[in-house]
Amino acid sequence: MTSKNVLIVEDEKDVSVYLSRVLEEGGFRTACAADGEEALRAVERERPDLITMDLSMPKVSGVRSYQTLRSRPDLASIPVIFVTGITGHGGARDTERFYRTRRQVPPPDGFIAKPIDPTKVLDLARKLTSVRREEPVSLGKT
């Protein structure tokens, strides 16, 4: 079976290396982009099966890049996971609730809260690259 390709969009190099190694150990191929602009070029080039998108980045934020992706018919079906450190004790669920209630941003396919849990990242990546789900999947801290 051909391994699935994940694009990691993350401006923190060490976090990017971490995510990349976790996913590669789980059998995925990975490519990295350090900001929103680079991400769009990489998506067009790599046509990944999944994108993990950090929300807090310089130049073009993760949310802006995500909106651009969703507005492009040729790219809109690629599942996107938001990766965010902006969570409190509610973990990713806080962020998930926030973004799901914002009309101007369609909900992404999943959320990951920092600090990253490798098992949860792999579970989520496998679910999203095997079957496209109707509802967003959350595997952040609970």
């Binding site: 923190e12 060490d14 976090v15 290396v17 971490y18 995510l19 190694r21 976790v22 150990e25 807090s56 450190g85 902006i86 920092k114 600090p115 990253i116 490798p118």
Partner: peptide, 21 residues
């Protein structure tokens, strides 16, 4: 600061993960 600390924590955890590998 909390946000920055989470990134540092991820860098540390990532380092430990790769050392263990």
């Amino acid at each position: 600061i909390a946000h920055d600390a989470k990134n540092i924590l991820d860098g540390l955890q990532g380092g430990i993960y790769i050392v263990n590998l």
